[in-house]
């Protein structure tokens, strides 16, 4: 589902954020990406949804060579990928329902379908009674659920979450991770979670990739050993 071959990303500033990275993530996998601040985790996932372009190497996501996608086609490519951020990034002037529906509206989904899918997704994330609330009326955990609902409502093949629990307390964080696990099980979505939170990684054991200085230091799937997460 996700494949990187000798990928390097050098920013205009000269910072080498990703350095000759190789990785292979299969369909339906649940993977943690961990590592210290500035290690290149965000850059790595930005390469996946074409927020940044690789300087060299090959990035393949959902069967498409990402660096070969024309600018004009990027929006269509992004419809294969759901993205969730630490700061939720909801549209503040839209209701919960509208925020989630937005993903479907841009793809010209018929209205009846939109209503059905949004309702089902809100049920999945446990927010069916907040459909008409505005983001600022919700708690952080609830806002993140809306963001997750928006990311998965169009059944993307891949869901990427960049520190989704960074702004949440431990209990809420656990709920969010449990939700992501459920989505992984129910929808068989490939899920990548970038996190700082060692408790989460230890509690919900999954394949874990440690990135340091733009390189993959360890990968539990290839016999790596992650212990002293700083």
């Amino acid at each position: 589902m996700i494949k990187l071959e000798n990928v390097t990303k050098v920013y205009k500033t000269g910072v080498r954020a990703v350095n000759n990275m190789n990785i292979d993530i299969g369909e339906g996998e649940f993977v943690y990406v961990i590592g210290p601040t500035g290690a290149g985790k965000s850059t790595f996932i930005k390469l996946l949804y074409r927020e940044e372009k690789a300087s060299s190497g090959k990035v393949i996501v959902a069967g498409q060579d990402v660096s070969k996608i024309k600018n004009r086609k990027v929006p269509y490519f992004r419809r294969n990928i759901g993205v969730v951020f630490q700061n939720f990034r909801l549209l503040p002037k839209k209701t919960v329902f509208e925020n989630v529906a937005f993903t479907l509206e841009v793809t010209d989904t018929p209205k009846v379908q939109i209503r059905k899918k949004v309702r089902r997704t809100l049920e999945l994330v446990g927010l069916e009674d907040k459909a008409n609330a505005f983001p600022h009326e919700l708690s952080g955990g609830q806002q993140q659920r809306v963001a997750i609902a928006r990311a998965i409502v169009n059944s993307p093949k891949v869901l990427i979450a960049d520190e989704p629990t960074g702004n949440l307390d431990p209990d809420t964080s656990n709920e969010i991770i449990a939700l992501l696990e459920r989505i992984n099980e129910v929808n068989h979505t490939t899920i990548l979670v970038v996190t700082h939170d060692k408790e989460i990684v230890q509690k919900h054991k999954k394949r874990t990739i440690l990135i340091e200085d733009g390189c993959i230091k360890t990968d539990t799937s290839v016999g790596g050993y992650v212990d002293g997460i700083h």
Binding site: P75, Y76, R78, V83, R89, L90, L91, K93, T103
Partner: peptide
């Protein structure tokens, strides 16, 4: 600006 960023993230085309 953030609003536009979000629209692009969910795959809205430029004209949209």
């Amino acid at each position: 600006q953030t609003e536009i960023g979000i629209m692009r993230m969910v795959g809205a085309s430029n004209w949209y």
